[in-house]
C-alpha cells in the first residue's frame, strides 16, 4: 500500500491521475493479474506523465490500444480512416466535401428540416404558403409544452397545429374562450376577434390536444380527438419564409 508521505514520484499522485490509472488498469486487466502485452506497456508508462491532463490523454489512448489488442481488430477503423484521408489533398478535400454533404442531408432529414405549409389552420401566425423550420429531434428530448406548434405526421404534409393540452389536462370552452384546468388559457397568438368553441375533454395519457390558431376553419382535435404523441413529426422552430 502506498502512503501519501512518499515522494511525488511514487505510485500515488492526484485523484485525477489515480482515477485515470484505475480505469486503464481495469480495461487492460479486466480482473486478471495481468493484461495483454501492449495494454500493460501503456499502463507501465502512466507514471511518466507529468501533468494530470497528460495522464488522462495517455490513459485514453491506452483504452484504445487495449481494445485493439483484445479484439484483434488491428485496424478496421484505422484502415478506413487511412483510406479516406490518406490520399493527396485533393482526395482529402473531396472526401471531406462528400462527408459534409452527407451530414447535411442527414441533418436535413432527421434533425432540422424545412416544410411548406399548405393550410390556413395556423393563421394568423403561420399562413398558407409559408415555409417553417421544423425540429425533428429536440422535442423528443425536451417533451412538448402547451403553446408549441407541431407538425402532424406524415412528414412533408406541413399540417401544423398548436398544442393546447397535455396528458391529464382538463379542457373546456366558455364564452368563446379556452379554459385549461379551470383557468382561462393565455393565447396571445390568436387573432383579436377569435372565439373558440369546443367540447369539455380530459387529455388521456400519451396524447396531446391540438387546436389550430385559426379556430373557425381548422380541422383539429375537436374533430379528430386528442392525438397520440408519437404521431407528432416535429416542432416548428420558426418561420423561414413568408407566403408571397
Amino acid at each position: 500500500m502506498v502512503t501519501a508521505s512518499e515522494t511525488p514520484t511514487s505510485v500515488s499522485g492526484s485523484v485525477v491521475r489515480r482515477c485515470a490509472r484505475a480505469i486503464l488498469t481495469r480495461a487492460v486487466r479486466r480482473g486478471a493479474a495481468r493484461g495483454g502485452v501492449w495494454g500493460e506497456a501503456v499502463l507501465a508508462e502512466m507514471e511518466e506523465a507529468r501533468t494530470d491532463v497528460e495522464a488522462i490523454r495517455w490513459a485514453a489512448g491506452g483504452l484504445w490500444v487495449s481494445w485493439r489488442e483484445r479484439t484483434g481488430r488491428v485496424g478496421i477503423v484505422a484502415a478506413v480512416f487511412g483510406w479516406l484521408f490518406g490520399g493527396g489533398w485533393i482526395r482529402r478535400l473531396a472526401v471531406v466535401a462528400v462527408l459534409l454533404v452527407g451530414l447535411a442531408l442527414l441533418i436535413h432529414q432527421f434533425v432540422l428540416t424545412v416544410v411548406y405549409v399548405p393550410s390556413v389552420t395556423m393563421e394568423p401566425g403561420v399562413r398558407a404558403g409559408d415555409r417553417v423550420l421544423v425540429d425533428r429531434v429536440g422535442f423528443r428530448l425536451t417533451g412538448l409544452d402547451v403553446g408549441d406548434t407541431i407538425v402532424v405526421s406524415p412528414m412533408g404534409s406541413g399540417y401544423t397545429l398548436r398544442v393546447v393540452g397535455l396528458p391529464g389536462d382538463e379542457l373546456a370552452c366558455r364564452d368563446g374562450k379556452l379554459f385549461r384546468n379551470g383557468s382561462p388559457a393565455n393565447e396571445p397568438y390568436l387573432a383579436a376577434d377569435t372565439t373558440t368553441e369546443c367540447q369539455a375533454v380530459a387529455v388521456p395519457d400519451g396524447h396531446v390536444y391540438l387546436l389550430g390558431d385559426n379556430r373557425a376553419s381548422a380541422r383539429d382535435s375537436r374533430v379528430d380527438g386528442p392525438m397520440a404523441e408519437d404521431k407528432v413529426a416535429g416542432r416548428v422552430v420558426t418561420r423561414v419564409s413568408a407566403a408571397d
Binding site: 501492449w38 501503456v42 485514453a60 489512448g61 490500444v65 488491428v74 485496424g75 484505422a78
Partner: peptide
C-alpha cells in the same frame, strides 16, 4: 503522437 496513435504503430 498520442499513446493511441503511437502504440498501434509499435505493435505493427
Amino acid at each position: 503522437l498520442a499513446s493511441g496513435s503511437l502504440y498501434p504503430i509499435l505493435m505493427r
